[in-house]
């Protein structure tokens, strides 16, 4: 219970701080963010956009890990855990895509421009979509679990290409792209310490939130199965 209150306070603080703290030319007070050329007021969305993308990746990773465990132990619980993770993954994936598109509109002038990162998140959306389509096409539980586990592992091994390789070969707009003149991700060189602190607090908050939601999702799947079984029996 304590950690739920803690999480509430954390996320409330992050939301308020992320939205309300002013951006000034020369930050002096602890609550002032620095002015980042090229981003200006848009910089604030970083507290919400990056954590959603981060959670998407965690959810995808967890889904794959549980798929792997299912193939190893053939325990249907692992398949449910993987499913619960993927359900959250697609929600956060859509959130990351939308917040990213909004940010792109104001920072680069268009909602969508096939920047490498945008391509990757789009591919991730496609993978999730294909995964759910595959699951819904199979009746038998074991078969569904096995085939979707196999597919999620095959999909997972292509992810490094999107995350590490594509941004290097395609010219893009995100920091860290092939034609980027700045030396690396935005975190390293332009945020000051209080901005970084709130950024990492937000990452932590979203990660805890994700694990909590994942647990609830997993439990609800189990109850759903139990009710279905009782219904079938009775």
């Amino acid at each position: 219970m304590v950690w739920k209150i803690f999480l509430f306070l954390l996320l409330a603080f992050v939301s308020v701080a992320g939205i309300a703290f002013p951006i000034v030319e020369k930050p002096s007070a602890w609550y002032e963010f620095p002015f980042i050329p090229g981003l200006e007021e848009n910089a604030k969305i970083i507290f919400f956009h990056v954590p959603t993308a981060w959670v998407t990746v965690i959810a995808f990773l967890m889904s794959t890990i549980f798929s792997f465990r299912y193939l190893k132990n053939k325990n249907l619980d692992d398949d449910l855990k993987s499913y619960a993770a993927a359900q959250l993954g697609i929600i956060f994936c859509i959130l990351a895509t939308v917040t990213g598109a909004v940010w792109a509109k104001f920072a680069w002038g268009a909602f969508w421009s096939w920047d490498p990162r945008q391509t990757s998140i789009f591919a991730l959306l496609l993978i999730y979509g294909a995964w759910f389509a595959l699951r819904s096409s199979i009746e038998s539980e074991e078969k569904r679990a096995t085939l979707s586990s196999v597919y999620s592992i095959i999909a997972f091994v292509t992810v490094p290409f999107f995350i590490f390789v594509m941004p290097r070969i395609m010219t893009g707009l995100h920091p860290g792209s092939a034609d980027d003149t700045n030396a690396g991700p935005i975190v390293n060189f332009k945020m000051n310490s209080n901005m970084l602190l709130i950024f990492f607090l937000s990452l932590t908050g979203f990660t805890i939130l994700y694990f909590w939601m994942w647990q609830i999702g997993y439990k609800s799947l189990i109850y759903k199965e139990k009710i279905q079984k009782q219904f079938l029996r009775g």
Binding site: T119, G129, A155, F161
Partner: peptide, 13 residues
């Protein structure tokens, strides 16, 4: 119907 849907993200890179 599912074949191109499943293959496309895998073949994209």
């Amino acid at each position: 119907t599912l074949y191109p849907v499943l293959s496309f993200p895998i073949l994209l890179p």
